[in-house]
């Protein structure tokens, strides 16, 4: 554990909680992509199956349980509790174009051709692109609520901190996991455009809206 990984995990946790609180407090999931949230629920489920087989640390297990629990709670709020506020018309990204290639890639490029390992690899690849339906939705509507941008910023920050974590681990532990690193870098790049808008607009007190 190093400071980048800890702050990365906490930033990830903050993102998840910001999203849950936004939906809960406003009683609305307007502007949130239910498809991205389903993808994240799939990501956590397929990655954290090792909760049942491997114990790493109390921290590790607790965080996994919290992430999975929050992911399903978010999906429940979007598709059940506050379904009436879900903006399905604008959430039109075709997720099969992500899930199918990612599944194929996980079978082809992995550390070990075993059930658990392929699921882990699938979750890593899927996480790297799971935010695309959300970004697509924002580009389609041309705007995002400020609280939604805070959520996205925390999520992107988590990815960026994980890259620093891998640099740290490579230098001080000689550890690197190429699959996680490549997927993580891809994922972080997807946030770059958003980071730019966040810094130039949201942090200056303006609402995030895209030019028509």
């Amino acid at each position: 554990m190093n400071i980048f990984r800890l702050t990365g995990d906490l930033s990830h946790l903050a993102a998840i909680i910001i999203l849950l609180l936004k939906i809960w407090k406003s009683r609305s999931c307007a502007g949130i992509s239910g498809k991205s949230q389903i993808l994240f629920a799939i990501v956590f489920t397929t990655r954290y199956l090792d909760l049942l087989s491997t114990f790493i640390s109390l921290y590790n297990s607790c965080m996994k349980v919290i992430y999975i629990g929050c992911a399903y709670a978010t999906v429940y709020m979007i598709y059940m509790k506050f379904r009436a506020t879900y903006d399905g018309n604008h959430d039109s990204f075709r997720v099969e174009f992500l899930v199918v290639p990612v599944g194929g890639l996980a079978v082809l490029i992995n550390h070990d051709f075993s059930f658990m390992e392929i699921l882990w690899t699938f979750s890593i690849y899927l996480e790297s692109v799971a935010i695309l339906p959300q970004l697509f939705m924002i580009s389609k509507t041309g705007e995002a609520e400020t609280i939604t941008t805070h959520y996205l910023f925390c999520l992107g920050l988590y990815r960026a901190l994980y890259i620093f974590n891998w640099v740290w681990r490579f230098y001080f532990e000689g550890f690197f996991d190429l699959i996680a690193i490549v997927a993580g870098v891809v994922q972080t790049i997807l946030y770059c455009d958003f980071f730019y808008l966040y810094v130039t607009k949201v942090l200056k007190g303006k609402k995030l809206s895209l030019p028509a």
Binding site: R5, D9, D50, N60, M63, H111, E117, W120, Y162, D177
Partner: peptide
């Protein structure tokens, strides 16, 4: 190298 020995990250 056995990179996949343990996935200790979240």
């Amino acid at each position: 190298a056995d990179e996949s020995a343990s996935h200790d990250e979240l």
